[in-house]
Structures are given as C-alpha cells and as structure tokens.
C-alpha cells in the first residue's frame, strides 16, 4: 500500500512539474465553457445536460493527452528498467499511475464547478442530476484513462500513444452510438449498446444511479488495467 501511495504521489506531482498540465486544464475549461454557454442561452434551460453531452467527445482528446506520457516516456528514457527492478509489484505501479491520472482528471472536473454555480445563479437547476452527471463523467473519464494507460504501455512514442489511444476510445464510443447500431445486424445490437462507452454515461446522466452502469465502468477500468499489467509482463515473454 505504501508503494502505491509513493508511486501515486510522484506521478501526480509529475503532472505539475511541466507547464503542460496548466495548459491542458485551461484549454479544457475554456473549450467546454465556450461550447456549453454558446447554446445555453438559446435553449434557455437551467440544467447541465448540454455540458455533459459534450464530455464524451471532449474527453476523447483530453484524456489520452493525460495518459500518453505515463509509460511511453518511461520506456523511452529507460527509467522503466530501474522502476521494475525496485522492490515493487507491477500491479502496485499500474494502480499508482492510474490513481494519479484519476486525480488529475478529478481536479479538472472540479474546476468546472463554475458552470453549475453560474446556472444556479441564473435559475433553479436539479442538483441531483448535476451530481449524477459529474459522477458519470468521472466514471467515463476513468474508463478512457485506463484505455489510454494501456496504449501508452505498448509504445515508447508519446504521439503514437495519444493517437492510438484516442482512436481506440473513439471506436469503443462509436460502437454503442445509434448511428452504428442502426447499421449493425440486429442480434449484435444489444451487445454493441452494452459495450459502447457512452450509453451508460447517458443513463447515469439522466439522474438514475444504476448499479449495472457502475459495474460496467468498473469492469472496463479493471479490464484495461489488467491488459496494462500484462503488457508490462510481456518483457518476460521475449
């Protein structure tokens, strides 16, 4: 446990050692606020539904950018060789890194608190729905993080990690989208709808916390973190 915490702390601090973190949080807040408030006054409804509809697509760019560096840089600088010869389990390192990026994501989301505050000043929004929206966003984002971390562990090129990470996430997001399920063979539709990353987010966003949705995201996170651990072990298969 202590090792997980030390890895977590080091990784979390690493985000803020370079200016990239500040730039990303700023860009994220400006873009989401701009896109949301553009339509907000036209629709003239005091809720955050428009905001949360944006997130699966904004995260597509934002989240792989958080994770691309995580393993790729360790591989490139060969620090991975030292890290893996210290007395740590691979699992501890993977969890530590995941928690660090999770906290970074959570902080970014927390900083968008100005949006619900603004809405609350202008109208009378449903607090429960906004809370559920944030919970869904955190789960969705964490699933993206797990995918991004796994992809980062497969390459030593950060740009490649970003592009492929975004690509795989996009694929898993689109697969459940009505545009795709409309075209898919009917027997596959329930499967696609279930697997798609966005659908569970939408149902949580409607204000219903269903354990099935939570279990879905937790399993997706678990699955990709497991792949991440396997890819670290792959050095032993050569």
């Amino acid at each position: 446990m202590q090792s997980i915490f030390i890895i977590f702390l080091k990784e979390f601090k690493a985000f803020f050692l370079s200016p990239i973190a500040y730039i990303f949080i700023t860009v994220y807040l400006v873009v989401t606020n701009f896109l949301f408030f553009q339509g907000f006054f036209i629709i003239n409804q005091a809720d955050m539904r428009g905001y949360f509809t944006l997130l699966p697509w904004i995260f597509l760019i934002f989240v792989p950018a958080i994770t691309m560096r995580s393993w790729a840089e360790e591989k490139k600088l060969k620090t991975l060789e030292l890290l893996l010869t210290w007395p740590l389990n691979d699992v501890e390192i993977v969890i530590g890194k995941f928690l660090a990026s999770f906290c970074f994501l959570a902080i970014s989301l927390l900083l968008s608190i100005t949006v619900p505050i603004t809405i609350a000043m202008l109208g009378n929004p449903d607090g429960g729905m906004i809370f559920c929206g944030y919970l869904g966003a955190l789960l969705l984002g964490s699933a993206y993080l797990a995918i991004g971390l796994w992809i980062s562990s497969l390459t030593e090129n950060q740009i490649l990690a970003f592009i492929i990470g975004a690509g795989i996430t996009l694929l898993l997001l689109l697969i459940g989208n009505p545009f795709i399920t409309m075209l898919a063979p009917s027997w596959l539709v329930p499967f696609f709808t279930y697997i798609g990353l966005g659908n569970h987010f939408e149902s949580i966003g409607r204000g219903i916390i269903d354990s099935r949705d939570i279990i879905y995201y937790v399993s997706i996170i678990g699955f990709f973190l497991f792949l991440n651990i396997r890819s670290l072990e792959s050095r032993k298969w050569e």
């Binding site: 202590q2 090792s3 030390i6 890895i7 080091k10 601090k13 690493a14 050692l17 370079s18 600088l77 060969k78 620090t79 060789e81 030292l82 010869t85 210290w86 007395p87 740590l88």
Partner: peptide
C-alpha cells in the same frame, strides 16, 4: 530486489524531478 542496488547503463533518471525529490522517492520505495 531488496538486496540489490542497480545502476543501469547511462543512468536513466526522471529528468523533471529535483535531486532531493528523486532520492526521497527512491528512499520511500
């Protein structure tokens, strides 16, 4: 791994950390 101290070729280190932070990190582990 607890008994071994290892310096790989070309000393791979975390470039954006300070010396004291880095050694405290390794010491913690």
């Amino acid at each position: 791994r607890k008994k071994i101290g290892y310096l790989p070729e070309n000393a791979p280190l975390y470039n954006d950390m300070q010396v004291n932070e880095y050694l405290a990190f390794v010491g913690g582990l």
